[in-house]
Design a protein around this nucleic acid. Structure first.
Lengths: 189, 189
DNA sequence: CTAGGTGATGACACGACATGTCATCGCGTT
DNA sequence: AACGCGATGACATGTCGTGTCATCACCTAG
């Protein structure tokens, strides 16, 4: 058994998700994960800051991706349009067509307070990345924060709606519907 | 030394904040807190679910307060107005005039990832309470979620702005300014 | 071809967090 | 005075997360 088998991180992630699915997040211990992956506990914590992080391993680069897309995008009509445009590729590649997988993921998320909490942090990280992007475009602090948070809210609320319903509306359309709903609700003039 | 001295929870909270101020959140252990309060470690966890919770002990009932205020309020012009109206007493009693204390609190919050994460959960709990209130008023799921989240965002962004600046604008006014900013920002499309 | 150098992993120890369980005590009720 | 209830103490335990040093594979220089 070769020490040094490659892809330690991926093996850990794989083993973790198998165990989470089999017995839940809380009931799965880190030693269980590392045993299945053929590694040691210490190595797990070299690849993931804590047990929760492995759950979000696939999504770590999402904030950077959005930030890059926003930075490269041409000047949009409005900051909010810029955000929604920057989100579109992510929505397309990571959400659309994966509804069932994402529903399973949400079930796991709902089963554990710690995971829910970490999910909020990931959401905040996304908002931060967007806020930085808006600051770089010259928006003032408060405006940038406001729009970034609102943009992320739109996407998350839309995702919830999308996962809750069984029709085949596209997530992208639901996001835009949410935008229109909020607009009219605020009485934007 | 009487077992049974009253106010165990308050003593724990007091001791905890003293120690957090003296040596930071992470460097403070639960046994340290309980020793100073004249109690045992086990008792700490009977009063607070975990070490982070004691930090937010003063704010646990805030979501319920807002929910009650919203439930008792007469029908407002708009749901968002209802939220901001429901927030006003809280803003008045827990924020206005306490800027320095709240700045200190924010410093502690910034010093620890775990605390920041828990703060996000408290924020989410507030949004949930508001969302329930809106649902009870007959709004549909998505609309209620959208407006509740946006309302909480307005308040939090405004608080940040308020704490960042040294002028003597009232927080309530900053919240309304933020509302107008968002309104115009979404409307301009 | 061999001697380092580098980087990832193993092995071990350890402190803190969090929880289960049962005993103990203060206090009010009857 | 006996009893019950609720809060606390005392003890044990499991998991998490980190510090530290040794070990091994691979690469590169000479």
């Amino acid at each position: 058994m070769g020490r040094w088998r490659p892809d330690a991180r991926e093996r850990l992630q794989q083993a973790a998700f198998e165990l989470f699915a089999e017995q839940g997040f809380a009931a799965t211990t880190v030693p269980e994960i590392t045993t299945r992956a053929g590694l040691t506990t210490r190595t797990f914590f070299r690849h993931f800051a804590d047990k929760r992080e492995v759950f979000f391993a696939d999504e770590v680069e999402m904030p950077k991706v959005v930030a890059t897309l926003m930075a490269e995008a041409p000047a949009s009509a409005t900051p909010m349009a810029l955000i929604l445009e920057g989100m579109r590729p992510l929505v397309e590649t990571r959400f659309e067509g994966r509804k069932e997988v994402l529903r399973q993921r949400r079930e796991l998320l709902r089963s554990d307070d710690g995971l829910r909490e970490r999910d909020l942090r990931k959401r905040a990280a996304m908002a931060d990345a967007i806020r930085e992007g808006l600051l770089a475009r010259g928006l003032d602090r408060t405006r940038a924060a406001l729009i970034a948070e609102t943009g992320v809210t739109l996407v998350y609320v839309a995702i919830a709606e999308w996962l809750d319903t069984d029709d085949d509306r596209r997530l992208d359309d639901i996001i835009r519907e949410a935008f229109e709903t909020l607009r009219s609700e605020l009485g934007a003039s």
